[in-house]
Design a protein around this nucleic acid. Structure first.
Lengths: 144, 144
DNA sequence: TATTGTTATACTCTATAACTATA
DNA sequence: TATAGTTATAGAGTATAACAATA
């Protein structure tokens, strides 16, 4: 591939680090770590989810979810219960305060930064199309 | 901002997580953690750098650099010495093996993925321009 | 027996604060 | 006294393995 591709990819890689750092800072400002904020975002208000279903989106082992959820519980942001059909399964759901923090978090994380505002609808759609393709490519299991 | 901007930003945010995860996996495959791999990439072959100068690019406190560099030292990837002008300053430099791993790491991390290959030079330059603007915007200290 | 979630263990990263050696 | 690096400490995330309760 030409030089332009390499440069764009490198820029994107460095931008990725900045975006993650920014999300980490936003989480920290509301008193959460990155994985804690992630769990909050994954939980939809009013819907209980089995603890085990969080491991995959979080990208960590199921044993770690216990600790992360423990701390969110201590903070009063989620509550735990048992599934009725299967008593082994623990369901977690947002508390009222959890919903509030989640809303703030999503609002701040997903509000597009300035530079995107100066682009036309067409440019944005073109950008999104490229990013989605990259996203799909990177989600495929890597053939190392 | 319109819907297209929000969608593009959300896609980019999710892509950022994938890119970081990918880098983490590549580092792990050669036996390194993310910060360790980061240090390796920051060190240019043949050039010694003061330990303290790594803290800022790593985005962590200087006290943490000690441990990260310790482990790289244990792995035989870097070597430590003292600066001649100022005996307080510890300089670190890549070993031969360190240079090898760094090369492999950079090669694998910065090789553009498939989807970028199908874009024209103009599209890639346009993409890079947008990403650089976002990068600049996110690097500015946030006005919270 | 198999599965869900937890606990135990060990390691890395993280910030803060105290310390050392040098300037 | 100031600075560079280290060490001490405490907390969070991570994987692995072992475990309890339930299926």
């Amino acid at each position: 591939m030409g030089n332009a591709g390499s440069r764009a990819w490198r820029t994107l890689s460095e931008l990725a680090a900045l975006i993650q750092t920014r999300q980490s800072c936003i989480s920290a400002e509301i008193g959460l770590t990155m994985p804690q904020g992630h769990v909050l975002c994954l939980l939809e208000p009013g819907k209980a989810v089995a603890t085990g279903r969080l491991a995959e989106p979080l990208g960590c082992d199921a044993s770690n979810v216990t600790g992360i959820v423990d701390r969110l519980d201590s903070l009063g942001l989620i509550k735990r219960g048992f599934a009725e059909e299967d008593r082994r399964v623990r369901m977690i759901a947002l508390t009222e305060r959890g919903v509030e923090l989640r809303t703030e978090l999503l609002e701040r994380i997903y509000t597009p930064p300035r530079p995107l505002e100066s682009l036309t609808e067409e440019e944005l759609q073109s950008l999104d199309r490229i990013l989605v393709e990259l996203w799909r490519d990177l989600r495929r299991p890597r053939d190392v």
